[in-house]
Design a protein around this nucleic acid. Structure first.
Length: 566
DNA sequence: GCCGTTTTCGGCCCGACTGTTTTCAGTCG
């Protein structure tokens, strides 16, 4: 898979062209790069079919460069640009405050080529001596370098939610504040969040900004104006606050929710209608008359399209769909959770504790699905303990209202066999199949598809094996996997554990389009994690355009049981 | 360099804040 390598080169070309003050091309290269980054197909396959130009943002010239890279491992233009400006441009550009102009002047005047040299020069006070730059710039660069190093990792959404809601409440408590919404990637429920964009309605913006900046949890104020402020909290999260008037809240919310790509498309669409869209509202280009600003709903309607839920705003086809009024009715809640662990394997809480906690969340059913197989580290169940485990579930069932389905998460061996005997699996209500070892198996697609074809697996759990910020997904042919899952009536899991979110949003959409069904599960290992399926899993599935009919655990128990028998 | 329900040529998102200079360019989201 060369997608990311190619994207990186295109980004670098964009940055290098920008330094040369070339117009428009940087944006074109960047668009192609981002589009390739989010592909769920191997670009080599696309190239083989001659379909490179079908990728949004890729035209004749970039397609040629991709082919050149696949053939030779290099792109001549890229080499040439690098030769004329031999610096680590992507690295330097990642520092906040370092734009193309600054990078260029620093190279020309004092030969700064990389992050280490930049840091040294700043520490030695060499940057402040350059015309146009001063001591503050120098200090900001040093700070920026630290942030690049520490904040390279975006934070997992699941870990940010409690902190974000806490700071939201703090802002709500400021006198004169009427309404508070956290916008940005947080509202779109992306898997990771870099900073929080908080919008507040108030008639006294200055006061609100001042109070916000003086919160005890604020470590440093990065920027402060009449209407907005940017601070770094002691827990390391960057928070931007924007204070708005009520009558412009909709346009501001739309603008700050993003994504940037979505907004750009909206603006282009507005222009075609003789309108211009900004955070201040939708106005007529000629007369400057305001047409819509108060709510997002009005703005989308005035643009001639359906309202687009925040989770879909990634410029992945939602705008076209909304124009045709084809935005699906996305999943909003699930009735139960079909993947969780207890003290019988590697969980922290008992079957009864898990059942009662799930009942408290309003779930109608759960599946207890402890590990089974050779996975020693997770205290996996063997054949002998499984018998006792099933009896233990029966005992708890008598005590609780919630329906408990009997399940196991069974390891798929390297040859595609399951690690538990078939007659044992027959005693279960549903079987989860999973890869937990041998991640580098040469043909993982074959291993998994063999398992689905030869065995009775109801749900393939965390299908790609990725762990966010830690482990890359194993190499899989998703088209083949989806085809096999559909043919074998296997549900594909959306594992809602914060560092998994596996399938990815892009893959969920592709799976559904291929005719597959999914199951949204918490993979909880204690009672405090069961909510993941609702708080993180459901929004994540929405990002994959999932509707209730696509999701196993949106159905009632009778329908689920019937589906599992197939 | 890409793209098309005004266009195969001629456009390409928009405004706030910062730092430095003194009226604005650069950067960011």
């Amino acid at each position: 898979m060369k997608n990311l390598e190619i994207a990186k080169i295109l980004h670098e070309i964009a940055n290098l062209l920008e330094i040369r003050r070339v117009q428009f091309k940087p944006a074109a290269y960047r668009r192609a790069a981002m589009s390739i980054e989010s592909l769920n197909k191997d670009i080599i396959e696309i190239a083989k079919k001659g379909k490179l130009k079908d990728i949004p943002g890729v035209g004749a010239s970039i397609a040629e460069k991709i082919i050149e890279f696949l053939k030779t491992g290099k792109v001549k233009l890229h080499q040439k640009l690098k030769k004329s400006l031999p610096i680590k441009i992507n690295e330097l550009a990642s520092v906040s405050g370092m734009g193309p102009k600054t990078i260029k002047v620093l190279y020309e005047k004092i030969k700064i080529k990389n992050l280490a040299e930049l840091k040294r020069a700043a520490k030695q006070g060499k940057i402040r001596k350059i015309g146009g730059l001063g001591q503050t710039v120098e200090e900001n660069i040093l700070q920026g370098i630290e942030i690049v190093k520490t904040a390279k990792k975006r934070m997992l959404l699941g870990l940010v939610i409690p902190l974000a809601e806490e700071i939201k409440e703090r802002v709500e408590s400021i006198p004169g504040v009427k309404r508070v919404v956290i916008a940005g990637s947080y509202r779109r429920r992306k898997e990771t969040v870099r900073d929080l964009d908080i919008l507040a309605i108030s008639k006294q913006p200055g006061k609100v900004v001042d109070t916000f900046c003086s919160f005890p949890e604020v470590k440093s104020v990065r920027a402060k104006g009449a209407l907005k402020a940017s601070v770094r909290l002691k827990n390391g999260i960057n928070v931007d606050l924007y204070v708005l008037q009520e009558n412009k809240f909709g346009s501001a919310l739309n603008y700050f929710t993003g994504s940037k790509e979505h907004n750009i498309e909206l603006r282009k669409l507005a222009l075609k209608k003789g309108l211009t869209l900004s955070e201040h509202g939708l106005t007529k280009v000629k007369s400057k008359k305001l047409v819509a600003a108060k709510t997002e709903e009005v703005i989308y309607e005035r643009l001639g399209m359906q309202y687009i839920p925040p989770e879909l705003r990634e410029n992945r086809g939602e705008i076209e769909a909304a124009l045709k009024r084809k935005i699906p009715r996305l999943v909003t809640k699930i009735k139960g959770d079909l993947h969780m662990h207890t003290t019988w394997s590697d969980g922290d809480d008992t079957i009864e504790e898990m059942a009662r906690a799930a009942q408290k969340l309003g779930y109608k059913f759960i599946a207890i699905s402890d590990h089974a197989g050779p996975l020693k580290i997770a205290n996996s169940l063997d054949e002998k303990r499984i018998t006792k485990y099933l009896k233990a579930i029966d005992r708890v069932q008598k005590k609780v209202k919630i329906k408990i389905l009997k399940s196991l998460e069974v390891d798929i061996k390297k040859n595609g066999d399951l690690s538990i005997k078939k007659q044992t699996l027959k005693k279960l209500d549903l079987v989860l199949g999973a890869i937990h070892s041998g991640f580098k198996t040469p043909d993982m697609t074959k291993r998994i598809c063999t398992a689905l074809e030869n065995n009775h697996i109801n749900i393939l759990t965390h299908p790609s094996g990725r762990v966010i910020q830690k482990r890359a997904p194993y190499s899989l042919n998703f088209d083949k996997l989806f085809e096999t899952a559909k043919a074998t009536n296997t549900f594909l899991e959306v594992d809602a554990f914060p560092n998994r979110l596996d399938l990815t949003d892009v893959n969920i959409k592709a799976a559904i389009e291929a005719g597959c069904k999914i199951a949204i599960n918490s993979d909880a290992h204690n009672i405090n994690q069961i909510h993941f399926s609702t708080t993180i899993g459901v929004p994540w599935a929405r990002r994959g355009w999932a509707t209730e009919k696509d999701v196993l655990n949106c159905w009632n128990l009778k329908k689920i049981k019937k589906a599992l028998k197939n």
